[in-house]
Amino acid sequence: MRATKLHADAFSGCNPIVNFMYFAFVLGITIFFLHPVLLGISFVSGMVYSIYLNGGKAVKFNLAFLLPLMVAAAVINPAFNHQGVTILTYVRMNPITLESILYGIAAAVMIGSVILWFSCYNAVMTSDKFLYLFGRIIPALSLIISMALRFVPRYKAQIKRITNAQRGIGRDVSSGNVIVRIRSGLSILSILVTWALENAIETADSMKSRGYGLKGRTAYSNFRFDFRDRILVVAMLLFFAGIIASIALHRLSVLYFPAFVINVPDGFVLVAYAEYLIICTLPLMLDIREDLIWRTLRLKIVSSGNKSSNGADV
């Protein structure tokens, strides 16, 4: 899938408000409602989107980490939970019930979906987007987060410089016995911490002299909220409200204990399923739309032949 990609993930290019709202809705519904159909929709679309975003890495991760975790969750529930009226068998005097097995599978799919969606979240919601969103609500904490994220690579680079300087005066970490090595390693860390703290004061004073904390200062951001974002936000809110309404009206209900009962799939409920499917597959639909646009543009470029650069400014 990755190899044939024509463009960057379209959903990642939306405004961070759209990204965050999307993940909040999908994760919220996945965690709060253990409804089999909703979980199935969430799991499958989370899986497809994570593979779309992360390629082969996602497939490997899903097989090596996600699958065992889900199997464990599915097995743990019937082993400890003996509620339910349909007793299938007895294991060491403890009843194994159909209901607890069903619940175990639902819980496993829930956990799997949450982890899949978080792997998508990690790819889409980069730290700059988070800071853009929360910079105004929690300015001081956001500033600490952004500085700490910057400091980590900076300290790594500084460690290299300190190590080289220490080697210059004969304190090489790669020579001598273990105790000598540990000692010179620790002294490098000690130098780093002192440097970091001194440097921090300098940074802070520089910030202060440039007016940090004064009134009327604005923050730079590289994101715009355009027409597409507006449409996406309105659509998501509408569909989300539709799902919440069906849950509040007890049309989307499920009961695992004492007996497994699920709502009748009438027209009303099917609409709610469709709404959830649309929400969950929103990023994929955006990507498919972008794919089509790119293909037609390419065709146009090819068909326009040697008409020089006309195709480029479409």
Binding site: M147, A148, L197, A200, I201, A204, D205, M207, K208, Y212
Partner: peptide
Amino acid sequence: ARELVIIAV
């Protein structure tokens, strides 16, 4: 600012 930066460090 100083307190923020020390915490960030």
